[in-house]
Simulated scan of single mutants.
Amino acid sequence: MKTTSYYIFVLVTFLFTSILTSAHAFQKDSDKFVVVLDAGHGGKDPGRPTKFGYKEKYIALQLVLAVGSELEKQKDIKIIYTRKTDKFLELHERAAIANKADADLFISIHCNAHDSQAYGTETYVLATRANNMNIEIAKRENEVIFLEANYEQHYEGFDPNSPESLISLSLLQEEYLDQSIRLARSIEDNFKDKIKRKSRGVKQAGFWVLHNTYMPSVLIETGFITNRKEGDYLNSKKGQKDITTAIINAVKDYKKELELNIGMDVYHTDEILETTDSPQIIKDVIFKVQIAASSKELAPKSYNFKGLNDISREKSGAIYKYFYGFTSDYSKIKELQVLAKSKGYKDCFVVAYKDGNKIDVSDALKSVSN
């Protein structure tokens, strides 16, 4: 049995490799925006079974081919497919295709399944934290690993049924999380607002297919094929046209925003924590408000950030993150967050650092009584 220290060694090795690879990727000299489209399942892996006769692998492939066909009409976009036929691909191969291409985006398309009549769309990014429901969803998608030859060698002892294994995947994609969430939100907004589907929201879970991609990555659950009405819709020409149009529009909007080279408001899925009026000093912890992220290096001056002072900047990969405030007083930082929101940074959020390392805000607050 592998020890905990061995797991840590493996993860650190992977993380170091990913940083080097991602740095190389951002140095590419290309006039194309590269999108890798991944049709979930395929070949001997049909996806989740359904009594209505739908096969996820076929629907996912049709959606991917339709999305790719339309995006390829854009002269500045290059599409790469992980599969264009009913072919079985191992999960690690899918990520390898995206990394080899130095892709700008990785999008994996699936259909959902449940033992109830649940319905609606969901778009996932890799979890930094995951609740029990999302862990169960990730387990189901990751079970394809057991169909692969020599899977123990490819996945470094990863256990698809282990919550600890799922949560540990977050280390490798954390630097791209802001962008992944932004794309995921755009996709879900298009589903809800443009084609009037029920959106179940942007979620986080430990999907292996996302964990080792060195670019913003999302996994889209386009609907439940175990729901007869939604399964009929996903299997229809109209349904597939609607879904592909929403995804295409989201990708175009995301790309356009990146090209503006301006600070992007950052989406954050954590709940806003309660504040108090009195000072709440947390010893040895520094709080900041993250207000923006951008591919452009901006001077941390008030004129670049709607008059806000005390701006700091941090580089993560090819992305610059911008922060407002610097204090050990949690009550004070919540006041600054309110002020930042009033300036238009509606999705800003509080971050915490201890000894120069980022920690969860909830963990920082646990020490208040110590």
Score class of each variant (00 low, 15 high):
354 K>H: 12
91 L>I: 08
264 M>E: 09
277 D>M: 13
64 V>Q: 04
200 R>W: 10
278 S>I: 14
204 Q>D: 06
275 T>N: 13
312 S>V: 04
117 Q>S: 14
258 L>R: 08
354 K>T: 05
32 K>W: 09
268 H>G: 08
304 N>K: 11
278 S>P: 02
260 L>E: 13
78 K>Y: 04
258 L>F: 12
215 M>D: 05
129 R>I: 12
115 D>A: 12
154 H>S: 10
195 I>P: 07
120 G>T: 07
75 K>T: 14
80 I>G: 07
8 I>D: 11
290 Q>Y: 12
209 V>I: 09
255 K>Y: 11
132 N>Y: 11
21 T>Y: 14
229 K>M: 05
307 G>L: 10
344 G>R: 12
166 L>E: 03
271 E>C: 04
298 L>Y: 13
107 I>P: 02
201 G>L: 06
155 Y>M: 02
339 L>H: 12
72 E>T: 12
138 A>N: 02
26 F>P: 00
299 A>S: 10
153 Q>A: 10
247 I>Y: 05
114 H>P: 00
253 D>E: 15
213 T>N: 07
175 E>Q: 15
202 V>C: 08
258 L>Y: 10
158 F>V: 01
187 I>M: 09
58 Y>C: 01
24 H>I: 12
368 V>I: 12
64 V>C: 11
238 K>H: 09
178 D>P: 01
81 Y>C: 00
138 A>C: 04
303 Y>G: 00
273 L>E: 14
228 R>S: 05
225 I>G: 05
362 S>Y: 07
257 E>K: 09
352 A>I: 06
196 K>Q: 10
161 N>L: 14
203 K>R: 15
152 E>K: 09
350 V>E: 00
